[in-house]
């Protein structure tokens, strides 16, 4: 079990260092996603399968999609097609693919070896986490919902493009 932990930790550190040293944001995002997946494997080994699933779904899924959207929005220009073609060269995706393949091999080995959930730590499942979350930490859940609402309103306000004002000036000064 420790070999899985050390391998995933090494993958996480290597992917994070590669992320910090890339020049293109898309390449850095690929490495960052691999780093988050490696941390998810570590959560699984530590006996936290619920948090491992959330790490994959929310961190590596939803939050990284936000980053990809912004990179795509900033990439709009004449050189977008050339950048797209350059992204498909093997030298770009082979590094993250190898790191992700290591994680996949660990996953298959964990499933094949049969000790799922992994031994070494007492597994704390979703039921216990949910009982604690909606019991002792109920006020924290309410605060988190208010924070998310504030984030939603702020992002909507900041993303507002002020189109009505532009149209109004065009009408008043034809």
């Amino acid at each position: 079990m420790t070999i899985v932990f050390y391998t995933a930790g090494a993958v996480a550190i290597i992917a994070t260092i590669m992320m910090l040293t890339r020049l293109d944001a898309v390449h850095a995002l690929l490495h960052l996603i691999v780093s988050l997946l490696a941390v998810a494997v570590i959560f699984f080994v530590l006996g936290a399968p619920f948090v491992a699933a959330l790490e994959v779904i929310i961190y590596a899924g939803a939050i990284m999609v936000l980053f990809v959207f912004v990179v795509m929005l900033l990439n709009l220009g004449a050189h977008a097609a050339r950048a797209e073609r350059a992204l498909l060269t093997p030298s770009i995706w082979v590094g993250p693919a190898v790191l992700a393949a290591i994680l996949l091999a660990e996953f298959i080995w964990l499933l094949a070896s049969g000790n799922v959930p992994p031994s070494g730590a007492a597994t704390i499942g979703p039921a216990e986490v949910g009982m604690a979350l909606f019991g002792r930490y109920l006020i924290g859940v309410e605060l988190a919902s208010m924070l998310l609402l504030a984030g939603l309103v702020a992002a909507y306000h900041l993303g507002w493009r002020k189109i009505p004002q532009v149209e109004a000036t065009h009408v008043s000064h034809p």
Partner: peptide
Amino acid sequence: PDGQVVFLFILAMAAAEVSVGLA
């Protein structure tokens, strides 16, 4: 389970921070 509960709060905070930061 408290550690995992705090991780959920960090997750919610990161989601709000990223949406405002990217905007």
